[in-house]
Simulated assay, not measured.
Amino acid sequence: MPTAQLSDVALRYEIVGSGEPVLLVAGLGGSAGYWAPNVEAFAARHQVVLHDHRGTGGSTRAEMDYSVELLADDLLRLMDHLKIEKAHLVGHSTGGAMGIVLGAKAPERIASLVLYATWAELDAQMEQCLSLRRRILGAMGEAEYHRATPLFLYPPYYVRDHQADLEREVAAAIAATPSRNILDARAKGIMAFDGLRYLDHIRCPTLVLVAQDDILTPPYSSELIAARIVGSELIEVPRGGHAYSRVEPEAFNNLTLDFLAAHPIGTHAHV
């Protein structure tokens, strides 16, 4: 994967396929690899742009304060670097929060939004989950932090049926882990996010998507977002946990690609 040098940060990115550009933006883990089950289907219709967030993967691993706004600005600058004037954005969790920021602050750059397993206001459930993950990290270290992660991402039936896959996933995460300080700073930064102030300013076509068994960003988080974004569409699927795109990839791909097809960029696309 190539790297884009953007003044204070280098972002590793990948471009696959052709057509209207779609930014697939990962959540707290920050790695482009999160979208592995989805890239092929998206690339059959679109130019897919993936990147590792600042602090993760092959991008700059700076020990600093993190915020959703900082990560959103990084993504906007990556669009500038790649000469992408306007794109669809499909964001998971933190990636969706980044989409909320860009949809409000750079509306001319975002053709449509898919906000999947996303939140705009930290509630007691999400706070408990993220605080526990931070305590595991602080007391037990990076490896145990990654070993605990599947319990927050995946529903019980998926954990039951994919133990070997999840063991490989955890081993890869441990091998590529950022430092304890970066992991904690990223978690702290997303806990501080206040997305409510942006929602009323979003005017692009928006799909809000959540699984009913998501324990990290439960359906009421998506219901709040959808209620505040004018004209948005809310879809609640029966199962898939916080990682619906990985648990039920075919269903996720079909839902999302159908939405993007209904809201083409048209003559405004330029790559």
Results as ranks from 00 to 15, higher is better:
residue 170 V to M: 00
residue 103 G to R: 05
residue 266 G to P: 04
residue 202 I to N: 02
residue 118 T to H: 03
residue 212 Q to R: 15
residue 31 S to K: 07
residue 260 L to G: 01
residue 67 S to T: 14
residue 173 A to L: 12
residue 135 R to C: 05
residue 129 C to T: 12
residue 57 G to W: 01
residue 128 Q to W: 14
residue 157 Y to S: 15
residue 259 F to R: 01
residue 122 L to E: 13
residue 190 I to W: 05
residue 135 R to Q: 14
residue 14 E to N: 12
residue 162 H to Q: 00
residue 79 M to G: 03
residue 63 E to P: 02
residue 87 A to K: 00
residue 170 V to T: 11
residue 168 R to V: 07
residue 141 G to A: 09
residue 126 M to C: 11
residue 232 S to W: 04
residue 136 I to A: 03
residue 165 D to H: 00
residue 139 A to V: 11
residue 42 F to Y: 11
residue 83 K to G: 08
residue 41 A to T: 08
residue 112 S to V: 09
residue 237 V to I: 12
residue 99 G to D: 06
residue 127 E to L: 14
residue 226 A to S: 15
residue 186 R to Y: 09
residue 59 S to P: 02
residue 80 D to Q: 10
residue 70 L to Q: 12
residue 37 P to E: 09
residue 50 L to Y: 07
residue 194 D to L: 07
residue 227 A to P: 00
residue 11 L to D: 05
residue 16 V to D: 13
residue 253 N to I: 07
residue 237 V to H: 04
residue 73 D to L: 11
residue 182 I to G: 00
residue 233 E to Q: 14
residue 123 D to P: 05
residue 65 D to A: 15
residue 47 Q to M: 14
residue 61 R to K: 14
residue 166 L to K: 00
residue 226 A to Y: 07
residue 259 F to G: 02
residue 216 L to I: 12
residue 129 C to Y: 03
residue 106 A to R: 13
residue 127 E to D: 15
residue 187 A to C: 08
residue 57 G to F: 03
residue 105 K to R: 15
residue 32 A to F: 08
residue 242 H to L: 02
residue 112 S to P: 00
residue 98 M to L: 14
residue 102 L to Y: 04
residue 200 D to G: 15
residue 14 E to I: 07
residue 149 T to K: 12
residue 195 G to Y: 04
residue 175 A to V: 01
residue 241 G to Y: 01
residue 203 R to V: 13
residue 26 A to G: 08
residue 108 E to K: 12
residue 73 D to I: 05
residue 58 G to S: 02
residue 181 N to S: 15
residue 107 P to L: 10
residue 191 M to G: 08
residue 35 W to R: 02
residue 39 V to N: 06
residue 116 Y to C: 13
residue 29 G to I: 04
residue 119 W to N: 11
residue 198 Y to R: 08
residue 28 L to P: 00
residue 131 S to H: 08
residue 255 L to N: 08
residue 220 Y to W: 13
residue 241 G to T: 06
residue 244 Y to W: 13
residue 88 H to A: 05
residue 3 T to H: 09
residue 121 E to W: 09
residue 243 A to Q: 01
residue 122 L to V: 15
residue 7 S to P: 00
residue 206 T to G: 07
residue 48 V to H: 02
residue 24 L to A: 07
residue 108 E to H: 14
residue 225 I to W: 02
residue 160 R to Y: 10
residue 100 I to Q: 12
residue 1 M to C: 11
residue 22 V to T: 07
residue 209 L to E: 01
residue 3 T to F: 08
residue 15 I to D: 06
residue 180 R to Q: 11
residue 62 A to Q: 13
